[in-house]
Design a protein around this nucleic acid. Structure first.
Length: 777
DNA sequence: ATTGACGCTATTTTT
DNA sequence: TAGCGTCAAT
């Protein structure tokens, strides 16, 4: 058991060591990409515990993702012979959920309150909009959702929103109505978890003091991603009260003594905790979602952080990659300042490829990957792009080449339609007043409850201010009877599963609800049936791990397995996709790549308008966030980094001519090796050792030079394409699938060029040159 | 209740 | 381009 202290600390560099063993005080660790951030965080916890400075229960560690939390727990258990299960290590939302479950009464919530995920929240808002007869042109549910969440994340309740005109006032009314609806239904959305638990601590002095005394060390991961509410929540627990209304910090509550200021012995703050925040302002890429990098400066100031520790030694990437990253990020104004370095050597130059089109770019990437596959496992190769739409061309090319790939960002397990349906039934068992769940499955599988019946029901519910379920009795006629049948179904489900273990409850519900039957009869229902069975498995493994989750001193008040499982399903949407083969090329947006690393990384679509994105550039601080995004992308690569862009790209059904991304210009030319002839306006240093090695992978003639801002001429592209392919009317060609043939005629130019080929066996075909692989024969 | 046509829209997204 | 949501038609 590696738990001796020297062992724990061995292998840390001086800065890491300083951070890990920092004497009790508030700390801000500026941890660059690949600098061992997670290691520092977990070792710090292990060090606090094994030196006897803190008990496991006096530590609170918070992350943003479940993945990060699990990682931390796993590493901690490897370092210390303790049971980490009862520790308060989790996501902001997970910990808030825990707090609210333990004190649901004080928080004004029903014991079995449900959590709405984004999609649930949206449908709840749509339902509200309909029931209040709100013009959804004027108030699109999506915008309302955004507005409500933004308010909550600023700590602003409906009654505190400042509204100056009719529109704003109406919007606030809707916000208020939404809050009422949630309260009546016994559900909370993600932001509500945070805000509720913040308010709980703010208002309930006993609880606040309890937790402030309990937690002596608060460790925060990815601190640059915290929003105002999360920061306020941390301050609350750390013992510094803060009002966050309107985003203005109003310290008009009598502040609790700052840790250390009122304590009479060192290292043990009375009524508060020491904050140990780890973050990287250069990797702040979620401002659009409310993250406030400014929290780092605020923490430094408000908690009087004596010295910011910088972790700048990078253990991930070769020097050239880091140099490029440093050079890029240096163009940002507002930075805390940091420069990554490595002793791993400079490695290879960054390879740059200019493609004629997005299709060419994709084909080139595929060729390059095929060449790489001897030295690198496929899962060590990542294709990154700025926006999801770009994945399609890449997927297409990979598919044609029969290269296995995996796209991040699809539907996750608990977000699948059939799973959501099943969960809705489970939710109704726990709480029949959950109208979101009710509306979702009242007529699924169809049981003859039409829109008109539901409208009547909604009206009745509104009239008596009750849930849909409770309003069934108020109806008459046909609607009444079919709805009563449904209500009885829920009752039977609840009674039938009363004493069953959770997995059997799920199983039971799948049968009684008719979901199984429904998907059995559906032609494409096989996958869905399998997923439903998988849900039973998920319930089973959840229960078997659950016993340990509850090993805590927090009174969990006979929380049922069902409620915990439902919370789990909302808070952790599960794997992104059935983890097909592990041996697959990884495709993802730059955002999703944050926190990951790969031997080989391709950053594609490095074009003005795409990356940096055109919508971001005019935004305030938008370009800087794009640049941080680029910084994140570059620092994902361990050994080899490819940068590519295309002259022509199909976007929204239109051909666009983009200029190369300015971020390419921000990389010192000496770090780059152009695989295609270099652009005219780019600087070519004499001392660059790689410039004379230029050897195009594909047969690219020197490009006609073009002025910046001038779109390439059509003729130029068309001419080049003909040159490139060497195709003309009458030409004999070979095609992979159709075999030998001859070109009959052609039309279009550039991207749209097509030829008609008469194949010996396959007959007459029109082929797009940009897609079909035709070689002269 | 399901199907098809039309029109709109189109960064990024932990929980 | 294509994926979605709404709407009308079956």
């Amino acid at each position: 058991m590696p738990s001796s202290i020297p062992q724990l600390l061995s292998g840390l560099n001086p800065e890491q060591l300083a951070a890990v063993t920092l004497p009790p005080q508030h700390a801000l660790i500026l941890a660059g990409a690949g600098s061992g951030k997670t290691r520092v965080l977990t070792t710090r916890i292990a060090w606090l515990i094994s030196t006897g400075q803190a008990g496991p229960h006096s530590i609170l560690a918070v992350t943003f993702t479940n993945k990060a939390a699990k990682e931390m727990l796993a590493r901690l258990s490897a370092m210390l012979p303790i049971n980490t299960r009862g520790m308060w290590i989790g996501t902001f939302h997970g910990l808030c959920n825990r707090l609210l479950r333990a004190h649901y009464r004080e928080a004004g919530l029903p014991q079995l309150f449900q959590i709405l995920d984004q999609a649930d929240q949206l449908s709840a808002i749509k339902r509200l909009v309909r029931s209040l007869n709100i013009d959804d042109e004027k108030f699109p549910p999506r915008e309302l959702q955004h507005f409500i969440n933004a308010q909550k994340e600023q700590g602003v309740r409906a009654n505190a929103v400042e509204a100056w005109d009719d529109f704003a006032r109406r919007r606030v009314e809707i916000y208020a109505a939404y809050e009422q609806q949630c309260q009546r239904e016994g559900v909370v959305d993600f932001a509500e978890l945070l805000l509720r638990s913040f308010e709980l601590l703010e208002r309930n002095e006993i609880l606040r003091r309890h937790y402030q005394e309990r937690f002596q060390h608060i460790l925060v991961d990815e601190f640059q991603d915290t929003n105002r509410l999360q920061y306020a929540w941390l301050r609350q627990l750390a013992g510094k009260a803060m009002h966050i209304a309107g985003g203005r910090a109003k310290n008009d509550l009598p502040p609790n003594p700052l840790p250390g200021e009122g304590g009479d012995y060192p290292g043990a703050p009375i009524n508060g905790a020491w904050i140990f925040a780890v973050g990287d302002d250069d990797q702040s890429i979620y401002a659009f979602r409310g993250a406030e990098v400014g929290n780092m400066r605020d923490l430094e100031r408000e908690f009087k952080v004596a010295k910011v520790i910088r972790l700048e030694q990078n253990y991930r990437s070769h020097g050239n990659i880091l140099d490029a990253a440093n050079a890029i990020i240096k163009n940002n104004e507002a930075r805390l300042g940091k420069n990554l370095w490595t002793d791993a050597g400079s490695g290879e130059p960054l390879r740059v490829f200019e493609a004629n089109s997005d299709l060419d770019e994709a084909r080139w990437i595929v060729e390059e990957i095929q060449g790489l596959s001897r030295d690198h496992s496929r899962s060590e190769i990542a294709l990154l792009y700025r926006s999801n739409a770009q994945s399609r061309v890449l997927e297409h090319a990979l598919f044609n080449a029969r290269l296995p790939y995996r796209v991040y960002g699809g539907l996750r397990f608990f977000e699948r339609q059939e799973i959501k349906h099943a969960l809705a039934y489970l939710r109704l068992i726990a709480n029949p007043d959950d109208d979101t769940a009710f509306a979702r499955v009242v007529n699924f599988p169809t049981r003859g409850i039409g829109a008109r019946s539901l409208e009547q029901l909604a009206d009745a519910a509104k009239a008596q201010g009750s849930s849909l379920h409770a309003a069934i009795g108020q109806l008459g006629g046909k609607a009444q009877s079919s709805l009563s049948t449904f209500a009885q179904l829920i009752v039977r489900m609840r009674e039938g599963s009363a004493d069953l273990p959770l997995p059997e409850v799920v199983d039971h519900v799948l049968d009684l609800s008719g979901l199984r039957e429904h998907y059995r009869n559906e032609k494409e229902g096989q996958d869905r049936l399998e997923n439903l069975d998988e849900l039973i498995n998920a319930a089973a493994s959840f229960v078997s791990e659950e016993g340990q989750h509850l090993a805590t001193d927090v009174p969990m008040e006979e929380q049922s397995d069902l409620a915990s499982f439902l919370a789990h399903a909302s808070l952790e949407a599960g794997e992104h996709q059935a983890g097909d083969s592990d041996e697959a090329i990884q495709l993802m947006t730059v955002h999703s790549a944050k926190g990951l690393e790969f031997n080989v990384v391709f950053i594609s679509g490095l074009e003005e308008g795409l990356f940096p994105h055109e919508n971001a550039v005019p935004e305030e601080r938008g370009l800087e966030e794009e640049r941080r995004l680029m910084y994140v992308a570059v620092t994902r690569a361990r050994q080899r980094l490819y940068l590519s862009f295309a002259q022509t790209r199909m976007l929204h059904g239109q051909t666009r001519y983009n200029l190369p991304s300015r971020f390419l210009d921000e990389i010192p030319a000496g770090l780059l090796k152009w695989l295609t002839p270099k652009l005219k306006n780019a600087y070519v240093p004499k001392e660059a050792p790689w410039q004379d090695e230029v050897k195009p992978k594909t047969s690219h003639k020197p490009l006609p030079l073009r002025r910046a801002n001038a779109p390439p001429m059509h003729q130029a592209i068309a001419a080049r394409r003909e040159d490139d392919s060497g195709l003309r009317i009458g030409q004999n060609v070979m095609h992979a699938k159709f075999g030998q043939g001859v070109i009959i005629q052609s039309e279009g130019s550039g991207q749209d060029a097509r030829v008609q080929v008469n194949f010996r066996h396959a007959g007459m075909k029109w082929l797009a040159l940009s897609v079909a692989k035709l070689s002269p024969a």
